[in-house]
Design a protein around this nucleic acid. Structure first.
Lengths: 351, 351
DNA sequence: TTGAAAGCGGTACCAT
DNA sequence: ATGGTACCGCTTTCAA
């Protein structure tokens, strides 16, 4: 079923069908209706490939993210969801590309074979060869995250430095003096992941400013690593009373480690960090955290990209977000005394 | 940069370039190398649209899942990840389509505009108009889940009936007599979602078989709903000692509800269900559950689809999985006495 | 207001 | 072993 068939049945030329459907040229109401009737009857829809070939646009955007091995974090997945739905609202489809670096086959296909009109990149590194490549060839793209020199480029990012610092100040204000930092995996930190790097930076500086005693840790993206990490923290400095984490996937393990060590949250130990909101609410006690507005960020990234696609020489735009800390139940003043016996939980040495 | 340009520079015809690159016709080693050199020099890659138009294949598969509002469950997201990576291994790209029903624009585009060679569908309903449509038009697809009449079609599914029943038997064996069932949201159950329907069925029958007293609940896909649901459970029958859940997203809320009600897991209350493994391990205590092998299922679905695409008249194949219950820490014999004082936790009325 | 025809960039058949 | 060319299905310019 192609446009020629429709033309024949409607007794008009192929171009007229094309124009009737696209509205790019006036068509007499009479023939327009005749064509529409045939189209409806046969359920005709133009071939995406043919159209893409003819006018050089695929109406598809690429979503690039590192292959996560087995596990994506909740945050990454929230991005995928929100980008997909925001794109659907513009009638764009989303093509997934699990590519951590420039040279990944999937990334090459996306660009080289012109499968997409533009791309959204997740998990940005401070020096990101994928972005360098895209910028070099002038390919329309928007980053979720900032490189080391984000000026003049398109992105929507989180102010990880400020967020981590805010967590430190929150804990310091509560009287905590010895706190730990639980980062993403060491491999990612070393690769220069923006959130890991800037987060660590913000944490370290704020802690120095407040004169706190700190230790920083890298931690695998899973519960087991979180548990192990927490054991190291308490082993290295049993007097630690709080931690800040960027590692959402490890959160469950951190909590379990605290429970196993007999530290009650938040009475004996405070936990906070930067985590997507709805995941912060699944743990008990609910996590006091700077909520990553993944939904909003995905939508903004799509808005930006669509704008850029519609106006090829529009000046670069971006959004830097710094959501406030949502106070929930995982932080408390250091050295709180139990308010009632019921709070006296998880303490192994109990008469 | 197109194939004509390459041909010109290499001093051969366009067809020779095409054959040299595809290997579908012998080309003298000499010219092949000459062509390859030009290709490498110019970084030529054939246009996906043109190729798709010419040979009728896009080398893309569609992944169809319901628009989830804001929240995808961990399981859904594991599917997306595993399907994408499995597809990448076959050099297929994945196009996302957030479509719950046949009539969604995105679904229409996928099929009508022939954007993909085949599709994988998630969140199957017992009567699924999307699948009916696909089958009717003979479009290659594989379902993750089974309809009411799965014979002769392509799918990879979970034996939800058996899984829910296994959970019941596990609890009954531990001595539990009054148990609750926490299902997916009512709207999904009524829409005929396979897991919700078959799971409920399996639970109900197994409970009857064991002569248990049960209540069944629908519950929203989020922590707050889980908390509310648990409160209802204990309100409706305070003597309830265990629950089975299919609702992964509510799990955190269920746990919190139990803690708030002063029920210690697993001493006072056992929790089990059907949940993706890595999410079962993030909660404390870790959930004893039938682990949904999302990673494996995604891979199998892609394998099946690729096989179907390569052999258009291969007979339908499928995989029905019934993973065993992984014993972790959230279930225990009913009425267990604390082994040591440390276990004496979360009980409000404590001297 | 409409039609004819030249691309878009490949593939593959038919020749040589 | 290689070249010429029709064709995939749609868009758009040029003409009428």
């Amino acid at each position: 079923m192609n446009i020629g068939e429709i033309a024949k049945r409607a007794g008009v030329s192929r171009s007229t069908v094309s124009y009737a459907l696209s509205g790019k040229r006036p068509v007499s109401e009479d023939t327009r209706q005749r064509i529409q009737r045939v189209v409806d009857e046969l359920g005709y829809q133009p071939s995406a490939s043919a159209r893409a070939l003819a006018n050089g646009r695929t109406n598809t955007i690429g979503l690039v993210f590192p292959p996560a091995g087995n596990h994506y974090t909740g945050m990454q997945l929230d991005f995928i969801g929100s980008v997909t739905e925001a794109a659907a609202a513009y009638d764009y489809d989303v093509l997934l590309s699990p590519s951590g670096v420039d040279s990944d086959r999937s990334f090459q296909r996306l660009l080289g074979e012109r499968r997409v009109d533009g791309a959204i990149l997740m998990e940005i590194r401070l020096e990101d060869d994928r972005l360098d490549h895209l910028t070099a060839v002038g390919f329309p793209s928007v980053a979720i995250g900032r490189t080391a020199r984000p000026e003049g480029s398109w992105w929507v990012g989180l102010d990880h430095t400020a967020l981590a610092a805010a967590c430190v100040h929150h804990l310091a204000d509560l009287g905590h003096r010895r706190i730990a930092f639980v980062n993403r995996p060491e491999q990612l930190l070393r690769a220069g992941y923006e959130s890991a790097q800037r987060g660590l930076d913000g944490f370290t500086k704020a802690a120095a400013e407040r004169g706190l005693t700190v230790r920083t840790y890298c931690c695998g993206d899973d519960a087991a690593s979180g548990l192990a990490c927490l054991e190291r923290i308490l082993h290295d400095d049993p007097a630690t009373t709080a931690l800040v984490t960027l590692n959402e996937a490890a959160l469950g393990g951190l909590y379990r480690g605290l429970a196993q060590a007999g530290r009650h949250v938040p009475r004996d130990f405070s936990v906070t960090g930067v985590v997507a909101g709805r995941w912060a609410e699944t743990v008990t006690p609910q996590l006091t955290a700077a909520d990553v507005p993944a939904e909003q960020m995905g939508r903004l990234a799509v808005d930006l990209l669509v704008e850029r696609l519609d106006h090829p020489d529009a000046p670069a735009r971006n959004h830097l977000l710094a959501p406030p800390i949502s106070l929930r139940a995982s932080t408390a003043p250091v050295g709180t005394t139990p308010a009632d016996p019921a709070a006296d939980l998880l303490v192994p040495t109990h008469p």
